[in-house]
Design a binder for these strands. Structure first.
Lengths: 157, 157
DNA sequence: GGAGATTGTTTGGGGATCAAACAAATTCTC
DNA sequence: GAGAATTTGTTTGATCCCCAAACAATCTCC
């Protein structure tokens, strides 16, 4: 009798996992995240995908309040506080007092933040290009389209 | 003069974000994760997608070591320890001593763990059905295929 | 003007993650 | 076979993300 396969050191039996959208989504996301981190590390910059999204949102929606921003990215307002603290300490972002509503902070990028964002955007484009290098332009379109469908579909339940 | 658009309370300007694979991936993943959590909460079960994946892996690869498992799911071996501790405390999983290598633990589900996993798998299937309800079977196939491409493509860099 | 709601913050409690150090066990080297 | 190098699981320490609850300041509505 042949010995049992024992431990296939290379790959494991993943059972039903590869047929699950959630699992494949997580895997792809994790791979993309790794390349993002790698791209920024190699360029000597430190930024997470979440921070990049936040900076873009603040840049494109000047005067945004923390509540509005927290809602836009789907986290609690208390979670946002230390994130903004750090970005502010790095000189990328400022909390101005709103002239119309004393409770809210009007968020805005500093000039240094604007310049940094332009730099970050260049890196993100390079990163996107790399992870999409094995897909055709049409495939990318289809993929983004299907991801949007998954997002808005799940959202409605 | 007309007042500026101020705060479009409903939606924000997301700039280039919707064209980024990484961003759309994160959004879809987050929506799917929410539905996963919701499905389990409503059924009175407590489990994360990561824990489900881990249980499936242990189930399908009996005798797996902690190192092999950590590598399979892409985390550090020290990160795995408290995760296994919790699963073990819940009576779902056990660390046996390997007869062939005294350093490693041979992981295995307990009988209760097997039963729980069957229950979890039912919930996961219902969850998958729901998040895929706005996509055709062909679309799901294409999506999973493209996600695999993204994963293995990014991996090779 | 006062009640109620909103906003940003702080605090407390889970977890996830990695890096470094360690003991036990195995494997490699001579 | 004895000693060196490696591997494995664990602990500790450091960041970070996340939420819920409480709080003061401010605004809104009546």
């Amino acid at each position: 009798m042949g010995r049992p396969p024992a431990k296939p050191l290379a790959s494991l039996d993943r059972g039903l996992l590869p047929s699950l959208l959630g699992y494949m989504l997580r895997r792809a996301q994790s791979a993309v995240f790794d390349d993002f981190a790698n791209t920024f590390a190699k360029a000597g910059e430190a930024l997470t995908p979440g921070e990049f999204g936040l900076l873009v949102l603040v840049d494109r929606n000047a005067g945004l309040s923390q509540m509005a921003l927290a809602r836009a990215i789907g986290i609690d307002r208390s979670t946002l506080v230390p994130i903004l603290d750090r970005l502010q300490e790095r000189g990328l972002l400022m909390r101005h007092r709103s002239p119309t509503d004393g409770r809210t902070h009007a968020l805005a990028l500093t000039p240094a933040g604007e310049k940094a964002l332009a730099r970050f955007a260049r890196l993100v484009r390079a990163h996107e290009k790399r992870i999409a290098s094995h897909l055709s332009a049409a495939e990318i379109r289809v993929l983004i389209d299907l991801l949007e469908k998954v997002h808005s579909g799940a959202r409605s339940l």
